[in-house]
Design a binder for these strands. Structure first.
Lengths: 166, 166
DNA sequence: CGTGAAACCGTCGCCCC
DNA sequence: GGGGCGACGGTTTCACG
């Protein structure tokens, strides 16, 4: 199922829906050059095959009152698989942690956090994150301003690469 | 317009659309407890006021062939505003760079990058990023595995905070 | 993959509170 | 001001060729 290769129309569909997830199916069909029914069938197939994981409204965090965004680099004491999983599950349970990625190099995890204000984040940092077992070190960096925040993947790069390997 | 406070129904709408951006308006109206027309009016207002910046399909990067994800910490030589803006604009033009945030602390920017493979990323790193003027240092960390990647903001935290300040 | 038909939905005007 | 009711046009989603 995951081995199913995509044709150019499928990739165009994904690119269009990544750019505008609420596009109507008829508009999508028009843009990719087929009629509506097969277009919808393709979308359903892409969803079921996992290429499309979901659709989300992109909300303005600052306007909603989330004025603080922080990247936290976390080092653990033990990197045993069970301990890594324990920490990951803890991150999944913390609403302020939006992303958690395991890294190579000196630091073990990078966390992207959002909070309404600094004191809310400080509380989380000192009472939850730093107090969690197995956490050895945490370095935090406040986001002064966001310069770019594009969703998803650059399909342009894929197309380029398709040509090179074709 | 940005001073417009949101009532509980608006926040519920935003939370629902963040969770499922393709929800039909009638379903959305049912969930927030009003009828369809006023619900649609609210959605349009939220869009125009900038609370909703867009809708995007969440595509599976790995299944699509983007197997490399990297965080890059960038230090600049000059932090003069004009030089910061120049670097930010350069990031906006690089498709492999999906996010660019200016940070406090030792490092100036954090970049989240995606690439089809390591060699594509290495080419970008050595030929574009490291060669860009004003770039003093770049530390990269490969994402070994992703543990959490939730879109948007935690509305639960907002509701909690509303109660505290009410 | 395309065509046609039926059910549903987005959208508007109007009335009500 | 916002919410509900009804109707039109467009869309989704079938079955079928």
């Amino acid at each position: 199922m995951s081995g199913t290769r995509l044709d150019p129309i499928d990739r165009k569909i994904l690119a269009e829906l990544q750019a505008d997830g609420r596009m109507t199916n008829v508009e999508l069909a028009r843009r990719v050059g087929i009629s509506a029914p097969p277009c919808l069938r393709r979308v359903r197939t892409l969803e079921e095959a996992g290429y499309i994981k979901g659709y989300h409204a992109d909300v303005d965090a600052r306007e909603l009152g989330f004025e603080v965004q922080v990247f936290a680099m976390v080092g653990l004491q033990s990197q045993a698989e069970a301990d890594l999983v324990t920490f990951e599950n803890r991150c999944r349970a913390w609403p302020l942690v939006r992303e958690c990625h395991m890294l190579n190099g000196e630091v073990d995890f990078i966390l992207k956090c959002v909070a309404p204000d600094l004191s809310t984040f400080q509380s989380f940092l000192t009472e939850d994150l730093l107090r969690a077992e197995n956490v050895a070190s945490v370095k935090t960096s406040l986001v002064i301003r966001g310069a770019k925040d594009d969703p998803g993947v650059p399909f342009e790069v894929l197309e380029e690469r398709m040509m090179r390997t074709a």
